[in-house]
């Protein structure tokens, strides 16, 4: 474990907590893409299957349980509890166009052709594009509540910090995983446009407005 990965995991934890609190406190999931949250639930389910087979550390196990539980809780809040506030009209990204290519790519490019490894690879590829429905929804509505933009900033930072972690691990432990690194770079790049808007607008107290 290193400081980059720890702060990355904490940023990830913070993002999930911000989202859960926003939906729970405002009793509304307006502006939130349910489709992205479904993709995240799929990502954690396919990635953390080893929860029952391998024990890495208490931290690792606890975080996996939290990510799994919170992702399903978020999907439940959006599609069941606060269904009336779910914005169907703006959450229209076709997630099959993200899932299928991730499945195909995982079957073609992986470290080992075993079920657990393929599922892990699929989850890495899917996570890199899982935020697209949410970014698409923000671009369609043309704006995002400031709490939603804080959520996105924390979520985008988490994988950006992981990139620093991978550089650190390569330098210190000569350990690297190209699949995770390439997907992590793609994932972080997808947020760049948003990061620019967040830093130039939201941090100045303005609302996050996308150029119409």
């Amino acid at each position: 474990m290193n400081i980059f990965r720890l702060t990355g995991d904490l940023a990830h934890l913070l993002a999930i907590i911000i989202l859960l609190l926003k939906i729970w406190k405002t009793r509304s999931c307006a502006g939130i893409s349910g489709k992205s949250q479904i993709l995240f639930a799929i990502v954690y389910t396919t990635r953390y299957l080893d929860l029952v087979t391998t024990y890495v550390s208490a931290y690792n196990t606890l975080m996996k349980i939290f990510f799994l539980g919170s992702s399903f809780a978020t999907v439940y809040l959006i599609y069941v509890k606060f269904k009336a506030t779910y914005d169907h009209n703006h959450d229209t990204f076709r997630i099959e166009f993200l899932i299928l290519p991730a499945v195909i790519l995982a079957l073609l490019i992986n470290h080992a052709f075993t079920p657990l490894e393929i599922l892990w690879t699929f989850s890495i590829y899917l996570e890199s594009v899982a935020i697209l429905p949410q970014l698409f929804m923000v671009s369609k509505t043309g704006e995002a509540e400031s709490i939603t933009s804080h959520y996105l900033f924390a979520l985008g930072s988490y994988r950006g910090l992981y990139i620093l972690n991978w550089i650190y691990r390569y330098a210190m432990e000569s350990h690297y995983d190209l699949i995770a690194i390439v997907a992590g770079i793609v994932q972080t790049v997808l947020y760049c446009d948003f990061f620019y808007l967040y830093i130039t607008k939201v941090l100045k107290g303005k609302k996050l407005q996308l150029p119409a």
Partner: peptide, 10 residues
Amino acid sequence: KKEAQVKDEL
């Protein structure tokens, strides 16, 4: 082929 070492990252 890289061996599928233990995945210790989240």
